[in-house]
Write a protein that binds this DNA or RNA. Structure first.
Length: 674
DNA sequence: CGCGGAGACCTTTTT
DNA sequence: GGTCTCCGCG
C-alpha cells in the first residue's frame, strides 16, 4: 500500500520497529528524550494508513493536552481528520463512558464530578460527624482523604494502607474506615463521583456488565498508553479490560521516570508486564535525542544509586556541550539574582524565552525568584499554582451551574450557601438537607422554607433563589449564557463588595463564558472543566511566550534548551517529608526527570541559608552524591553573578559532609566582606 | 447561630 | 504567609 509517510527516513531503527511491528501486547521502555511521543504519533499514523478507523483507537495519556497534541500531529502526518480517536486521560475517557452507562451503576447520567477540593470539604463533614475521644487530635481531612484515596487506587484495605504507609496513625484505623464509608454514602446521595470513583466505577462497569465490557473492548482495536509507569492498579486493570478483545496493546513508559507513587502509581505494573502477557514483546528506545552527553552523564550518575530499575542504557546522540553547573548561593535572594541574571544573559545570547525553564520540588519554592523576575520586568508563567478552574470565583459560579444540573449536589449547595450573609455552616446544611427532599430544582425554588430560617438568612436565601432562577430562565440553555446570567445577578455585587480586584475576577468569569460557548450542553461543559487540567485558552501567541517556572511534576514530558533546578538544598530536595516516608528513590527519579528536561545546559543551584531564619543549609544529598567530573561548581559574586571558575574546584562539594559548619562552601567569603 | 478577632499550626508532588 | 480553630459577643 502506498503511504504518504516515509517511515524509514523519519524514524530510527528502534522507533521503526515499534511503529511497524507492535501488534499484540507490547511494552516499550522509552528512555528520557528518546522520541517516545514521536514514536506514538507515528504509530497512530501508521495504523490509520493501514486502514484502522480512528474511532477504534484508544490513546490514554497523562494529560488531555498531550492526547490532543499527539492526535493533531498524527492528523497532520496522514492528512486526515482524526478527531474521532478516543484520546485523553483515564479520567476523561472514564467520564465519557460513564455518562452513557451511569444508570447501570446506580448513578444518574448527570452526576457531578468532585475535584480534590470538593472531596476534601466533603470528607471534613464526615469527620465532624464522627465523635472522637477527647484530648486526641484526629487526622486532618487532607490526610484522611489521602489515605482513603490511596487505598482505593491501590485496591487495598484502609487498614493495610495505614499499617504500611502511615503507621503512626494506626490508632485511627476505625475512624478513617468510618469516614470512608460515610464519604461514600454522601457521594451516592449527591449523585456525585470523585476522581477515584471515575476509575473504580469504570472498572466495575466493565467487570459487572459483561455485555457492555465486551462491546467497549470490541470497539478498541488498538489501545495505546503513554506514561505507563505512572498508572495505578485500577488503571492497569482498566487497560487490560479495554484491550481484552483485540489484545493490541502498546504500553509506553520509563520506570526511571515514575514519580507519582503518592497517588498509588505502581512501578510494578511495568515490571509485571511479562507475567501478565507472557506472549508479549518488549522494545527499548535507548537513543537520546534531547540532551548533551554531559547532561546524560549527570542523569545516569543520579539514577545508578537506585536499585530496582530496568536495565537500560541511554546513548547520547547530540554533540558535546558544557558541563552542568552547580551554583552555591548565600541566600535565596542571591540564588534568585543568579538565575535572573543568567536568564538575561541567555536572552542576550539569543536563546528564546520559551527555551528556558526553572524547575523546583514544591510550588512554594519559587517565591524569591518570582519576586526578582518581576522586579526586572521578565515575564514568566508559573505552572503548578492555583489552576484556573480552582479559583474561588470560578468555583462559585460553576457551583451554581452544578446545582441546576444536579440539584442533589451537596458540595455545590454548601459552597454557594456559605457565600450568603446571615447563612453559616449550620443553616447551609439545613437548607441542603431540605433540598434533597424535593424532586426537582423547580420545586426547591418555589418552596416556602421561611420558618426554617432567621430573618437575615431569609434574605440570603432569596438572593440564592434569584441566581438559580436566572440560570434556569436562560431560554437557549447555553452554558455560556447561563454564566453571563450569573454575572448579571447579585453574585456580581457580592464580588464587588468582597474583593478589591473584583474587576479581574469578573474578567475571568467572562473568559469562562467564552470558553463555555463551545458547549451546547451544561452537563458536558461541567464534566469537561472538572477534568481539564489547564485552561486551554492559553495558546495565545499575542505576547511573547514567556519563561516557564514549574514544579518538576508538571514538567514531565517537556523539554527546554536551558533548565535551572533551584533550591537543591538539604530538606528541600529530596523534600524532608518524602525522606521520612521512605520515598528516597522516588525523589531521586524526580531529580532524574528534572535533569533530563535540559537539551543543552543544566544549571543547578541552592542557597546555603534557609529562607527566613539564618539556619545554615547543606546542599542536597543528590548533589554531594554526584561524581565530581559530571558537573562544575560555580561561585557567585555578591550580586549573584558567576565568577569565572578556573581551577577553583580543588575542594569538592562531595567533601562538604565532612566539614563541621555544614553550611556550604567554606572558601566563599561571607556576604559582609563583599 | 453567625461572625469577627486572636492565636496556633504547618507548609510535597496531582488526574 | 495562609489556613484552621477556638472563643466571646450580638
Amino acid at each position: 500500500m502506498p503511504t504518504k509517510i516515509n517511515y524509514n527516513q523519519e524514524l530510527n531503527t528502534e522507533q521503526l520497529e515499534v511503529v511497524s511491528e507492535a501488534n499484540g501486547p507490547c511494552l516499550v521502555l522509552a528512555g528520557a528524550g528518546s522520541g517516545k511521543t514521536r514514536t506514538i504519533v507515528y504509530r497512530v499514523a501508521y495504523l490509520i494508513e493501514n486502514g484502522v478507523d480512528p474511532q477504534n483507537i484508544l490513546l490514554l495519556t497523562f494529560t488531555n493536552k498531550a492526547a490532543k497534541e499527539m492526535t493533531m500531529r498524527a492528523a497532520q502526518l496522514v492528512g486526515q481528520d482524526l478527531s474521532k480517536i478516543w484520546g485523553g486521560t483515564f479520567h476523561s475517557i472514564a467520564n465519557r463512558i460513564l455518562r452513557r452507562y451511569a444508570r447501570k451503576l446506580g448513578f444518574e447520567s448527570n452526576f457531578s464530578i468532585l475535584d480534590a477540593e470538593d472531596s476534601k470539604s466533603l470528607i471534613k463533614l464526615c469527620l465532624k460527624d464522627i465523635s472522637t475521644p477527647p484530648g486526641s487530635r484526629p487526622p486532618s481531612a487532607k490526610v484522611a482523604g489521602a489515605i482513603i484515596s490511596f487505598a482505593r487506587n491501590s485496591d487495598k484495605e484502609i487498614e493495610e494502607v495505614i499499617r504500611d504507609r502511615w503507621p503512626h496513625l494506626e490508632e485511627w484505623i476505625p475512624l478513617i474506615e468510618g469516614v470512608a464509608s460515610k464519604y461514600s454514602d454522601r457521594k451516592k446521595k449527591a449523585n456525585a463521583m470523585d476522581f477515584d470513583d471515575l476509575l473504580l466505577e469504570l472498572r466495575r462497569l466493565l467487570i459487572e456488565n459483561e455485555d457492555v465490557g465486551q462491546r467497549l473492548a470490541g470497539n478498541f482495536q488498538h489501545v495505546l498508553v503513554d506514561e505507563y509507569q505512572d498508572t495505578n492498579t485500577v488503571q492497569a486493570q482498566i487497560v487490560d479490560l479495554l484491550s481484552s478483545v483485540h489484545k493490541n496493546l502498546l504500553l509506553v513508559g520509563d520506570d526511571c521516570q515514575s514519580i507519582y507513587s503518592f497517588r498509588a502509581a505502581d512501578i510494578e505494573n511495568i515490571r509485571r508486564f511479562n507475567q501478565t502477557y507472557p506472549k508479549s514483546k518488549i522494545y527499548k528506545l535507548e537513543t537520546n535525542y534531547r540532551s548533551s552527553p554531559e547532561i546524560l552523564d549527570l542523569a545516569n550518575d543520579v539514577i545508578v544509586s537506585n536499585s530496582n530499575q530496568f536495565e537500560k542504557v541511554l546513548r547520547a546522540h547530540k554533540p558535546s556541550a558544557e558541563l552542568p553547573s552547580v551554583a552555591v548561593a548565600m541566600s535565596a535572594i542571591q540564588e534568585a539574582m543568579y538565575i535572573t541574571q543568567s536568564i538575561q544573559g541567555l536572552r542576550n545570547d539569543g536563546v528564546a524565552a520559551e527555551e528556558i525553564a526553572v524547575l523546583f520540588r514544591a510550588g512554594s519554592h519559587s517565591q524569591s525568584l518570582e519576586f526578582e523576575l518581576s522586579k526586572r520586568g521578565i515575564s514568566y508563567v508559573f505552572r503548578g499554582g492555583v489552576r484556573f478552574f480552582e479559583r474561588a470565583h470560578i468555583k462559585d459560579v460553576v457551583s451554581y451551574l452544578r446545582i441546576v444540573n444536579n440539584y442533589r449536589d451537596e458540595t455545590a449547595w454548601l459552597r454557594t450557601l456559605n457565600l450568603l450573609e446571615g447563612v453559616g455552616p449550620a443553616t447551609a446544611i439545613k437548607i441542603t438537607n431540605m433540598s434533597r427532599s424535593f424532586d426537582s430544582i423547580g420545586d426547591i425554588i418555589s418552596a416556602n422554607i421561611d420558618e426554617l430560617l432567621s430573618v437575615k438568612a431569609r434574605h440570603g436565601w432569596l438572593s440564592q433563589i434569584e441566581i438559580l432562577k436566572a440560570i434556569i430562565n436562560v431560554k437557549s440553555k447555553s452554558p455560556s449564557e447561563q454564566i453571563q446570567a450569573v454575572l448579571k445577578s447579585t453574585y456580581r455585587d457580592y464580588l464587588q463588595a468582597e474583593y478589591p480586584n473584583a474587576m479581574d475576577r469578573i474578567a475571568d468569569l467572562e473568559q469562562l463564558a467564552e470558553f463555555a460557548s463551545a458547549y451546547e450542553d451544561l452537563d458536558a461543559f461541567l464534566s469537561e472543566i472538572s477534568l481539564q487540567e489547564k485552561f486551554s485558552a492559553d495558546e495565545d501567541f499575542s505576547t511573547e511566550p514567556p519563561i516557564v517556572l514549574s514544579t518538576i511534576h508538571q514538567a514531565k514530558g517537556l523539554e527546554w534548551d536551558t533548565v535551572f533546578i533551584m533550591n537543591m538544598s538539604d530538606g528541600s530536595f529530596p523534600i524532608r517529608m518524602a525522606v521520612e516516608e521512605g520515598m528516597l528513590e522516588e525523589e531521586r527519579r524526580l531529580f532524574y526527570v528534572a535533569a533530563t528536561r535540559a537539551k543543552r545546559q543544566l544549571c543547578i543551584s541552592y542557597p546555603t541559608q534557609s529562607k527566613h531564619g539564618n539556619m545554615p543549609q547543606s546542599p542536597s544529598q543528590f548533589i554531594t552524591d554526584l561524581r565530581i567530573r559530571v558537573f562544575e561548581e560555580q561561585r557567585l559574586d555578591y550580586s549573584g553573578r558567576p565568577i569565572s571558575i578556573n581551577n577553583i574546584s580543588t575542594q569538592s562539594l562531595s567533601n562538604l559532609n565532612d566539614s563541621s559548619d555544614g553550611g556550604g562552601l567554606s572558601y566563599l567569603p561571607a556576604i559582609e566582606e563583599l
